[in-house]
């Protein structure tokens, strides 16, 4: 226990407490600062960049999380069958998630979606005139959504484990009753899987709010093109490490903590109605 407590105190709780304190100061990274009460927090709500970055981040969460989860569930269903070489396929589909958050992949992504890149080439032959996503602010966020979807490994493995847990006799009983594939999926698989779905939704949502690495590499500090990839976290980074406004950046960060906490609470509330635990009375 002791090493764990020291690690948590020094590396997590300590810095968090410090940043909470900083969020009430006008701390400048080089020159220090003074207590200014709630001024940072009130200033954020007057900051036009705040609303922009919130919009970009929410848009990403709302698109990336459902698409990623649906894709990973579908693949998990495919991979839950008992066929030859299934172990290989499972590993192969899991693989991208190991490297997706790396700098190298983000750079490759940039190349794929530049003008005259792979995506532009394929889509142009179908009459697309928007060029590469990289230079087009109305679709650029899709690059990051696709990167997230491509790296569906973690939720997929969890879905796969969940699918394996569904008792086979339920499907057999349904077969006897003459149920089709679709109604078996909707009436058996989904309810039995709902705790796992809930877990994945929660994890992916919390993760999506904090997306930083790929966004920073693809869009840079300026969220290119035209602030369309200026995520909340990128703004925090720029405020803290380019503008040196550590106090203000800390207030930004704490609002993110509050927002993610709020979203989590709402989800747990909703889960009480939506999630079915086997053995529970309904």
């Amino acid at each position: 226990m002791i090493p764990w407590i020291i690690g948590t105190a020094v590396l997590t709780v300590g810095p968090m407490a410090w940043s909470l304190y900083l969020s009430f100061t006008d701390y400048h990274l080089i020159r220090g600062g003074e207590w200014i009460g709630l001024q940072n927090y009130t200033a954020i709500f007057d900051d036009p960049m705040f609303y922009r970055t919130v919009r970009v981040t929410l848009l990403y969460v709302l698109i990336a999380v459902p698409v990623k989860l649906v894709a990973s569930l579908l693949v998990a269903i495919l991979l839950s069958q008992h066929r030859r070489g299934m172990g290989f396929y499972r590993a192969a589909f899991y693989m991208p998630s190991l490297i997706a958050m790396s700098v190298g992949v983000a750079l490759i992504w940039k190349a794929l979606f530049s003008n005259g890149g792979v995506q532009d080439g394929i889509m142009s032959s179908f009459g697309w005139e928007g060029g590469g996503f990289l230079g087009n602010p109305s679709v650029s966020i899709l690059m990051l959504v696709l990167l997230a979807v491509w790296s569906f490994g973690a939720p997929m493995v969890i879905f796969l484990a969940g699918l394996m847990q569904v008792p086979q006799e339920l499907y057999e009983a349904a077969d006897v009753d003459g149920a089709g594939r679709w109604s078996k999926f909707v009436r058996i698989t989904l309810p039995m899987l709902s705790p796992v779905i809930f877990f994945n939704v929660l994890m992916e949502t919390v993760g999506a709010f904090q997306l930083f690495g790929p966004a920073y590499i693809i869009g840079g500090e300026s969220g290119a093109p035209a602030w369309s990839t200026l995520f909340y976290t990128v703004r925090i980074y720029t405020l803290a490490f380019t503008d040196f406004r550590m106090g203000y950046a800390s207030a930004y960060a704490w609002l993110l903590v509050l927002a993610v906490g709020l979203v989590t609470v709402i989800m747990f509330r909703a889960a009480k109605r939506l999630v079915f635990y086997a053995g529970e009375d309904r």
Binding site: P137, E221, S222, A224, P225, A226, W227, T242, D243
Partner: peptide
């Protein structure tokens, strides 16, 4: 001291104009 950041913002915000944002 803030010039570095201001220089970046200057370019960034003019880009918004060019993109019609």
């Amino acid at each position: 001291s803030a010039t570095g950041s201001i220089e970046v913002k200057f370019a960034e915000i003019y880009e918004q104009v060019l993109y019609g944002e």
